[in-house]
Design a protein around this nucleic acid. Sequence first.
DNA 1: CGGCTACTTGAGTATTCTCAAATTGTGTGG
DNA 2: CCACACAATTTGAGAATACTCAAGTAGCCG
Lengths: 242, 242
Amino acid sequence: MNTIPAGTAHTAAKVVAGSLERRDDIGLGELRDHLPMTRRRLRPGQHLYRSGQPFTALFLVNVGCLKSCELSDDGREQVTGFRMRGDLVGVESIGLPGCTCDVVALDASEVWELPYAPMLSACLRVPGLQARLTWTLAEEIRRDRSWMLALGTLGAERRVASFLLDLADRHARLGFSASHFILRMNRTDIASFLALKHETVSRVLSRLQERGLILVERREMRILDAHGLRDCVNGDEPATMH
Amino acid sequence: MNTIPAGTAHTAAKVVAGSLERRDDIGLGELRDHLPMTRRRLRPGQHLYRSGQPFTALFLVNVGCLKSCELSDDGREQVTGFRMRGDLVGVESIGLPGCTCDVVALDASEVWELPYAPMLSACLRVPGLQARLTWTLAEEIRRDRSWMLALGTLGAERRVASFLLDLADRHARLGFSASHFILRMNRTDIASFLALKHETVSRVLSRLQERGLILVERREMRILDAHGLRDCVNGDEPATMH
DNA sequence: CGGCTACTTGAGTATTCTCAAATTGTGTGG
DNA sequence: CCACACAATTTGAGAATACTCAAGTAGCCG
């Protein structure tokens, strides 16, 4: 009944490998030949690491989906991103003794652990690796800045539309359908990421559905009119029917 | 009349140099010995670079204050940060052909231009430089994430209070007074950075002043009660007088 | 002294949040 | 397999917050 590719992602392996290696001399996936990499599996809800734990490694997501949550001393909490296959997790803790955020699996997931100290020295031996790591960090900064722009300039509806298009795009890059996928995160996580409340997210999704832009039922999402969603992000009024 | 250290920052040079070099084997300031560095001066309002210009170099701020602005294709604009002495500017464009944002001097400023290609190869020769660069990028990510947390979880008043404390802290690290300084940016820039409107920022500042937490007149800022501001950020109600 | 921009303040509006309730799906134990 | 508890989601109504529009003030520069 459910034709959506599940977490295993076997069919997408080639596409993903291509995108991982397209940029620069070496892909992070090739590190196997230069580093001791261990595989780690996570159940849904399980923490990859918690704030305060010693920082020793980066993680390359192979399968599944994880969220990273920023935490403040006074108990506030904010989802800062969702990580999928090909994403490097843990960069925010580089150079610190301990991790600065929580990372939690939303799905059955699998990551490769890349011990950081060996990785740094490998950068000196392996040509292109250093540039690749630096590029990945810069890319992370660009992603964060891009969301700061969205959160600072868009209202609730446009934020959600933007989020859906981003998800669709990332799914497409991984070789999955951009128009039909399963949301791995609940409404509260989406809301936190978008700096909204879960009720607002729910209402916006209902409204987008009423307009025929999407079809959503719980976690199952269909993008019916990506162009219309893009218009929505750009602030164009939906054409009035008559 | 004005006893605040101005842009020249001569008195703080030693302190700053210390903080620049404290972390890791080499400070970015020592790059002079390994790279062709050229100095560049900027007048207030002048662009260091614009979105779309070819990316060739990073910049180390020596004097003054700059803002970076993220831009979207449809004309939206968001200040993503303010950069002061010791900050590395341009990291968001690493690995791309062109710059992805605008950087504008708010003040008479001076930066050192670090050509990126020579810098990358210097990373292979100069021990510790690579780790230092990576650390700086990670620090940038942490700064962004920290603001994402603030913007996502705090109301207008607490955001502004948080912003003022951050400014005070950065001033202190540079050897300036944490309790008395000049805001280099106008209300609109502060508002954009905090995802608010300038009227809201203005109102909040007035309110904080009424409560005796700050004393503000245009760009001149005095922090009268840093502890009270901290309480404000943490959501504690101000003690009711009777 | 204009003319300008930056800033402040007020009043009414719009959006989002809060609180509450109803619904639905899920997993567990009987 | 069913009953139940529980978590996630949806929806409504009213409240709170921040925004928009507007007016007025104040410093700055030529």
